[in-house]
Design a protein around this nucleic acid. Structure first.
Lengths: 340, 340
DNA sequence: TTGAAAGCGCTAACAC
DNA sequence: GTGTTAGCGCTTTCAA
């Protein structure tokens, strides 16, 4: 049987309340007694029952991360989110909290069913990872558990939120391309929602800031399907027929940038000599690809760390006003871009 | 305040023990009473406290997934493992269990410190995800909590384990290349440990099975560092000097296959016309890359699902003998390979 | 079929 | 400074 505080108390020759106090570092217990108790606890390999504590203290020492599964794969599988999760876990590791995760399926979201952990309130705080429909998010926020949203796309009065500055990053990237002498920068995106729209906004702002006109023929929004490759190829081909050709491609993300480079190479064009290509996200492969992909870094771990530390503050009542935090993004030069 | 079984009992005009029985579907309670109680519970939105239950029942309804963080990034960030995790979560979603995760750091492994959840036994079962040093794994297994290992590299008498058939997959891939008329198949690997070694074994077996001699100059083991790209490029160049050139490259995984293809393209060679390339893992990008990467699929979700359902069986005492399960892998043809 | 009471392991008043 | 005791919310004998 697992050893309890009774065992420690008995062996130390004190009452369980004294043992409890000693073990929890209370002041109202003699130093000698305390040391003795702690020593015995160590000897016995005593570990308090998280459940008994939770029951007595009315706090769980758990924090939950909720993410969605909209199609086949859950959000957590996405390398982007798994790195945010890493940041979360990093700061969690320095606390006594445990991480319990839950992925809610599309049907559950549609039916507005709450995740078990929020129904039973078995967590002290919650991080909503990635996008959720506003009503759904509000429903969980309304349960009264402190919530921080990470990488969501809207505001809420009831929760802090943290997101990457997509617009600003896009601006920096395109601005940089222009500074490097590119005259015709195209934006190619898979669909045009959420962050991809914000990236487009940044693209447009950069053009405007440099007194360049927006050439609509250089804005491409591929169908948002699951056969990305074909679509990209098709659109890229179309782009190669444009006259004069773009001299730079700002792609909605790194994966698409890699595919674009391949299409270009197949068409006999050199990257970056004939055309520069910039991605977004700074995925692992971007640095290892040849040429390395110029991209915009999103500090994913940082987002996770910040989300978690904000959550800890909210739980500890060290923070009252809700805010929306935008994490800065930064352009990273790579071999796929050239000075013209 | 959260509503408890007392509230339900009072409102239903019964004692809490009757309420408890009704709510848990016991037989020894009148149908009318039972229905009434359940109805009221629903009305009140009653949700039992997981902690009180855990305390009373001496079972936690949690299962833990433990993974390691050896370098900067934790195992869970790896797309491969996050998909195994997906499988785990998938079958967990059909149970009443909650998923609590923990990533243990290298120092903790070196110091043999147990994850909190196993020290305090706050989970009913554990999945060890990815590689752990044998002594460490044995230490956690010794705590008496049911354990299933996923994608580990050794056997244990105390736990079931599940891994992909790397050797067999490599055999199939190389065998297929040979059947397609390739005469000189090279194996290029980043390092030569663990699964990459097993893939090499499969490679060699396929050569032998086809009465082909192992040409040592076609076996390349790059340094296992973090600047993969440079190394690969260097080795690939060296490979292009070999005479006669290999007509197919079996790469240790898809990421390296993609890099290899890029090096070849830069060298003016066509894939697959001049050289076929095969990867391993079947990562997402492999299908979207142009050309699509011929590869060996590892049923990652399946591994996770199986690990979890085995664990449930162990927890439910439906399984006693420990076994090591090898999940079959399969060759997937792609545009990077051509019939010669 | 129902209910009273003990107990799961711990913390926190409160008394000593 | 230390111990007694009453919960935290639930399940489960055991009696009625």
């Amino acid at each position: 049987m697992k050893i309890t505080i009774y065992d420690v108390a008995k062996k130390a020759g004190v009452s369980i309340s004294t043992a409890s106090k000693a073990l929890n570092g209370r002041k109202d217990v003699g130093d000698r007694t305390k040391d003795g108790i702690c020593k015995i606890a160590k000897e016995l390999n005593y570990e308090p029952s998280r459940f008994a504590r939770a029951l007595a203290l009315r706090k769980t020492e758990n924090v939950g991360v909720i993410s969605g599964r909209y199609y086949r794969a859950p959000v957590m599988t996405n390398p982007f989110y798994s790195r945010i999760l890493e940041g979360i876990e990093e700061v969690m590791a320095e606390t006594d909290y445990s991480l319990v995760t839950n992925v809610v399926k599309k049907e559950q979201i549609d039916d507005m069913v709450l995740p078990k952990m929020v129904k039973e309130k078995s967590v002290d705080g919650l991080i909503l990872l990635g996008h959720f429909p506003k009503e759904y998010a509000e429903m969980v926020i309304d349960r009264g558990i402190p919530v921080v949203m990470a990488d969501n796309s809207y505001d809420s009065a009831g929760a802090d939120s943290i997101a990457a500055d997509n617009e600003g990053g896009a601006f920096k990237a395109v601005n940089e391309l222009i500074k490097l002498g590119h005259k015709r920068v195209a934006y190619v995106s898979r669909g045009g929602r959420g962050s991809f729209q914000l990236r487009y906004d940044g693209y447009k702002r950069a053009l405007a800031a440099n007194n360049m006109e927006l050439d609509e023929s250089l804005s491409v929004f591929c169908r948002e399907n699951h056969e990305e490759a074909d679509d990209i190829r098709e659109w890229m081909k179309r782009m190669l027929d444009i006259n004069p050709k773009p001299d730079a491609l700002f792609m909605c993300n790194d994966v698409n940038a890699i595919m674009a480079i391949n299409v270009l190479k197949d068409a006999g064009l050199s990257v970056p000599d004939d055309m520069s290509v910039v991605g977004f996200d700074n995925i692992e492969l971007a640095r290892h690809f040849i040429p390395s992909i110029a991209t915009v870094n999103i500090p994913k771990e940082e987002m996770g760390r910040k989300a978690m530390s904000i959550l800890m503050d909210v739980i500890g009542n060290k923070r009252t006003a809700k805010e929306k935090i935008l994490v800065p993004t930064e352009f990273i030069m790579g071999g796929s871009v050239r000075n013209r």
